[in-house]
């Protein structure tokens, strides 16, 4: 829980990757999914989630869909065509970053 700052720079990649595997998701669902996948290690607050979603939307990587869910409206986010391409780029950048970090923090072992 103490390493939330380390995850901060990866939030957009996390969101894009989740949307790549889930077609469309709403804000609360994203926070819960991340919590579930990381077994509570990563807790995305609304103060971090919405600025990241709005930035991705402003950059044209996400599109919005509105649906009626019984007694209220719900806003879903989904990847645009550019968003799908950018997800692949960002995930590959992230893998490269992880490999570099692995070499730096644990030089004796290599993934290759």
């Amino acid at each position: 829980m103490g390493n939330q700052k380390l995850y901060k720079g990866s939030l957009q990649t996390i969101i894009l990757q989740l949307l790549a595997s889930n077609e469309k998701m709403y804000g609360y669902e994203i926070t819960q999914k991340v919590k579930e996948l990381t077994k509570g290690e990563l807790n995305i607050t609304e103060g971090a989630l919405y600025p990241a979603l709005h930035k991705l939307e402003a950059d044209g990587l996400l599109d919005v869909e509105v649906a009626n869910v019984g007694n209220r409206l719900r806003k879903y986010y989904k990847l645009t065509e550019n968003g799908s391409k950018e997800t692949a780029n960002k995930v590959s950048e992230m893998q490269e970053f992880l490999r570099t970090m692995q070499h730096l923090v644990n030089p004796k072992f290599s993934l290759e």
């Binding site: 709403y26 804000g27 609304e46 919405y50 919005v64 869910v69 209220r72 409206l73 719900r74 806003k75």
Partner: peptide
């Protein structure tokens, strides 16, 4: 555009 998602999240 913000009210809908904030209301949903708060609920």
């Amino acid at each position: 555009d913000l009210k809908v998602e904030i209301l949903d999240h708060m609920i």
